[in-house]
């Protein structure tokens, strides 16, 4: 199908984009790379009165290191994340995740800001920013607001952004000594929406976790930072303890059932990913098998 008719405004600056948002409120949609917005409009799931195109705003592009924070501009595309030496060095989780996002032609247009603001619960990057303990920087009529990633995602396609605000950047703490990452997802085919996925960030010292952040996606109405990780922090990770953690994870998650998987299958796959993650990060392959009963 084709999108319903709409008006179009090409923002000339962030300030101009905010003026346009203030004028049109929730009748407007911000157009960045358009790789989620355009399909939704072509399928007529969305029909905004006006699109505010921020695609030309150079001030929203680029990746920079400021002290111990990696600042990623909202218009940074998936392909930029894949190829960036700064991302590879300081936040390789983002690079690993993006390799699973759709296909090259989509990754050439899709942006990190667009992905986060769209907040698809099956999307990779929202779970990554949870695991990375990132901060989402937004600008509105009253100035700048910084929102912890853990506070940003509110539901299916819902975020803490208000209609007159624009997501301008993501701030990611640079990876410190001993930081390790894990990214895997189950999908029917490479590039498809995940059935269940896990983006994890850990600090490993003396064969145990001194920190572990587990960002699960496609397990509910928003990405989930699993509390079950707490069981594995500063503890000797035995198969029994890991079984306890996966049981806690299954209790904690409330996955939806859809044409891809039942809720029970999602819980099962999430537990398998957690075991695989612990096995990979601690370099103990035997943990992947789980506890013998």
């Amino acid at each position: 199908m084709k999108a319903v008719a709409f008006a179009y405004a090409r923002a000339t600056s962030v300030v101009n984009a905010l003026e346009l948002l203030a004028a049109h409120g929730d009748k407007a949609k911000v157009l960045s790379g358009g790789q989620s917005l355009m399909p939704a409009m072509n399928l007529r799931l969305l029909s905004p009165d006006i699109l505010i195109d921020i695609g030309g705003l150079a001030e929203l592009r680029g990746i920079a290191v400021r002290g111990d924070v990696l600042v990623v501009g909202a218009l940074t595309r998936h392909v930029d994340l894949l190829g960036s030496p700064e991302i590879a060095l300081h936040a390789p989780l983002l690079r690993d995740a993006v390799a699973h996002v759709a296909h090259p032609a989509i990754r050439n247009r899709g942006t990190i800001g667009g992905s986060l603001a769209h907040a698809d619960p099956a999307s990779e990057l929202p779970a990554c920013v949870l695991a990375l303990d990132a901060t989402i920087v937004v600008r509105g009529p009253a100035g700048e607001r910084r929102i912890a990633a853990t506070e940003f995602f509110k539901g299916i396609y819902e975020t803490a952004l208000s209609p007159d605000e624009l997501l301008v950047a993501v701030e990611v703490p640079v990876a410190g000594q001993g930081t390790a990452f894990f990214f895997q997802e189950y999908a029917r085919r490479h590039g498809d929406y995940a059935i269940v996925g896990l983006a994890a960030c850990a600090v490993v010292a003396a064969s145990s976790f001194s920190d572990l952040r587990l960002g699960f996606f496609a397990v509910g109405d928003r990405p989930v930072l699993a509390a079950a990780a707490g069981k594995l922090i500063n503890a000797s990770v035995t198969p029994a303890l890991l079984a306890e953690a996966t049981a806690a994870l299954a209790d904690e998650l409330d996955p939806q059932e859809d044409q891809q998987a039942t809720a029970a299958m999602r819980r099962h796959l999430a537990a398998a990913l957690l075991r695989r993650c612990a096995a990979a990060l601690l370099a103990r392959p035997e943990l992947e098998k789980g506890a013998t009963r």
Partner: peptide, 29 residues
């Protein structure tokens, strides 16, 4: 498909392949 899945509409924009069904003509300014 007109929603970015099938790839039949692939073209190059500034040297990079994109889905032309997921790009507005006005974005090609």
């Amino acid at each position: 498909c007109e929603h970015g899945v099938c790839g039949a509409c692939t073209v190059r924009v500034d040297g990079e392949i994109v889905r032309s069904c997921l790009m507005l003509t006005v974005q090609a300014q």
